[in-house]
Design a protein around this nucleic acid. Structure first.
Lengths: 142, 142, 142, 142
DNA sequence: GTGGTCTAGACCACT
DNA sequence: GTGGTCTAGACCACA
């Protein structure tokens, strides 16, 4: 799969992530490449994926997901532009060391904040009881 | 705020709604017409807008929002197809009497459910403490 | 080409830039989309293109340059991600207002700095006389 | 800096070059093998490296730079094809005697010319004052 | 009309 | 083997 000829040249590459780290909802209106981007962002922020981890190759992911390699490539490129992935030319992509630091709990919570705010606005427009909304969310989080 | 342009004295004290009942985030990735549709649905379900209320004209809304009249027209047409608005020939759109009934609290909560579920999924991927997420939402709902 | 139906809906759109603002060296090893990106960055920094200016459409540029629309689209998308362009959905791209501010002379000089530093390193490795290098550059800048 | 590993006493006091004569920017978009080629060309033209000097082995350079030996080998092969390096069977590569002559100052300046022209073009697109550009370069060349 | 997404396939550069 | 670039063409959503 990824034959290493000279062991020491990828000192920073920890492990190769499996091609099935991405889970795509093909029915969703959200573009495939965008689903991939947001998933990887969360995986990194949550610590499931660490800096230096070797990403599965574009072709591997493409076959695993049954999508066109260009679609995967687009996601990778955008993640590279974002600083989350780094290219090892001729070798593949790795999770960037600097950017992919653990976010602490507070930082991760901040990532959810804008989405929570949207919920709050909608709940108010619906004139819902705060307690009922909170109870529903609490139930889902179990 | 609620300036009445043409006093329309009909049965059951209904009002003419102002052109600024919609609040559009032009920067959002959500289409304008869809923002309008969902806002009106919530306003009706929450009771801020009642059956028989007169909608502002396409042109009024378009200028108030700085949006293409075609976009407003599209939203109105879809809401009409949905049964939430009704066309009164020569008089413009009014909120439909039959469809636009108060939803009770449980029904309104159901409208929020899918969005809450998205939040729950994201919170789990971020490995957030349920208590922290709930506390944040509770704070926003005050 | 760009028929405006209702004049007031694009208050911030100053003028439509011609499709030939880009000059592509097809022989270059530098990718087409990257040439476009760097050219627009410089045009904005230099003030030749201002915030609010309407970009020519993807299809116009593509035919003017004789390249695939997707190539132009890629450049536009990356420039949007960079904040230099903004999408007006259904209407096309405009130069972003916030990002596309005049750079003053000092700021523009900073854009050239890294490239100049590369030159300096190379000149030293070639053990060139500073005066000769400077004279050559001065001649080219006339 | 110039540590001699194996004293090789041949005609015309030539040295063994250290494995760290190359300085690679792995983050650069310029390919590693190309960086190596251009650096060696400049070092030879500038006289820091002379005909007959012994190049460090592929393996030495690869480990010193943390680069794949194939990459170093590719650079060496291309430099050999160019005539700048020569293969001494069983002894490794040496800098070629015939090709690796001092370039006089004018010839070396010519090597820098294309890069300077790129700078000039960019400076014009940025509408920079020639004097300011020249001053900045002069400062760097000190 | 606008841009966005995805597919299929070819070719290239780098390691 | 790796990713990058470009083309050609189809389909969609938005205004």
């Amino acid at each position: 799969m990824h034959t290493v000829i000279f062991g020491r040249h990828l000192a920073s590459m920890n492990r190769d992530l499996p091609p099935d780290i991405f889970h795509i909802a093909t029915g969703s209106s959200e573009p495939i490449y965008r689903q991939m981007i947001e998933q990887l962002r969360r995986l990194v922020a949550g610590g499931q994926v660490k800096g230096g981890d070797g990403m599965p190759s574009v072709r591997e992911v493409a076959t695993a997901l049954g999508v066109n390699p260009m679609t995967v490539s687009k996601a990778y490129s955008l993640l590279e532009g974002e600083g989350l992935l780094a290219r090892r030319r001729g070798l593949g992509m790795v999770v960037a060391e600097r950017e992919a630091q653990f976010h602490d709990h507070a930082a991760r919570l901040l990532l959810l904040q804008p989405n929570l705010e949207r919920i709050a606005v909608e709940a108010k427009q619906l004139e819902l009881e705060p307690a009922a909304v909170i109870a529903m969310l609490a139930d889902m989080l179990k």
